[in-house]
Design a protein around this nucleic acid. Structure first.
Lengths: 194, 194
DNA sequence: CGCGCGATTGAGTAATTTCAAATCTAGTGG
DNA sequence: CCACTAGATTTGAAATTACTCAATCGCGCG
């Protein structure tokens, strides 16, 4: 299975795995397909899975009081996506997670992750590193979001993630960067004062 | 040592520890005192320690391009503080971490943490749970910060962390909530439109 | 081929910041 | 213990940034 290969390769970059370990690890992941617009997670339901994206593009977002969609996370090939808070605490999700194009993912269930961590400390290490990186990433993102203006956030994003620009519609990226579609468009076309 | 007791109690809430495990765990923590205004971490230097606050109040912040102080994290009794990104990747810090009042902390070094994780999977579990919670916390905070207005963020903060209001000057909390001191003051005195 | 979603553009507006000055407060040295 | 001072908070008014509303345009998909 090609997907299982991919997740093993990914894991090997973080922790060394023997053949048997790699087999066990990859065996709990199930390949799934989601069509464009299909939901992986919906608010109110407990997020039972973490998703590793093999192919496609996926967005996570909330709907605020005014009914506006606000992008919280994006994922393409080799990225993970979930409602982290819901998954970790096994409480109802607050996020929509939705395929932006036809996508293939590997899913691991909460129970299987717990099992892996119990059975072999190396897996514990793997998930620990994932969590650490996630937290470090969020801290960096948070700092950027509060210290930079909209135009700076735009520039920084373009420089850091040019691939995402092609995969996601602008209104999704605009809200990921904490601005409206219209303002994003103005910045893009260099008409925002600057 | 009273401090070691506290960290053991804290750890026990996340993972069960035998007496020997608790001893080993607490043995790597060193008690330190910081005077008001003293820096625990400064930008440019690698953050070698994670700090568990026994007593006092500590803030983490960045200085933005305009020279403004922007609070990134706050910590009081039983909270942890560090430049997470710097610590995890052992790269130069971007944050100032500074005592807001005379404080007592327990510090654990990066090397000691690695050692604990190597020697016993239970410690690996402990740090994994810490990282997960940190990431989940940051995700929640991030979503709140982008979906709510300044006044809503103020109300939510007051409701969630009334203790912090007393410990930190308003300008620190204002910037933690992503607004200016002046605007914070107006909201507080109910003169901001609302 | 047309429908609907997404992107653009213009004009007016709201939220929040900036600048500036006045007032309050707490810590320090005499 | 008091006076002084630097730091912190408050208040007013002007300025910015980014948003909302509304209309138009473009284009890909069914």
């Amino acid at each position: 299975m090609p997907g299982q290969e991919r997740i093993i390769q990914y894991a090997q970059k973080l922790v060394p795995l023997t053949l048997e370990e790699a087999d066990l690890f990859s065996s709990v992941f199930k390949e799934k397909r989601f069509k464009k617009r299909q939901f992986l997670i919906q608010p109110g339901f407990v997020d039972k899975y973490k998703y590793f994206v093999l192919k496609g593009a996926i967005k996570a977002y909330v709907i605020d009081q005014q009914g506006q969609e606000i992008t919280v996370q994006l994922a393409i090939e080799d990225w993970w996506i979930s409602d982290y808070n819901s998954y970790i605490h096994q409480q109802p999700a607050s996020l929509f997670v939705e395929a932006v194009e036809d996508s293939e993912v590997l899913e691991i269930s909460y129970e299987d992750e717990q099992y892996l961590k119990t059975v072999n400390p190396r897996f514990e290490t793997f998930f620990r590193i994932m969590a650490e990186r996630g937290a470090a990433f969020l801290q960096r993102r948070f700092i950027l979001s509060i210290t930079q203006t909209a135009a700076e956030r735009y520039d920084q994003f373009i420089a850091a993630y040019p691939q995402l620009l092609a995969k996601f519609p602008q209104y999704v990226i605009a809200s990921y960067l904490g601005m409206t579609t219209q303002f994003f468009s103005r910045i893009r076309n260099n008409k925002a004062g600057k």
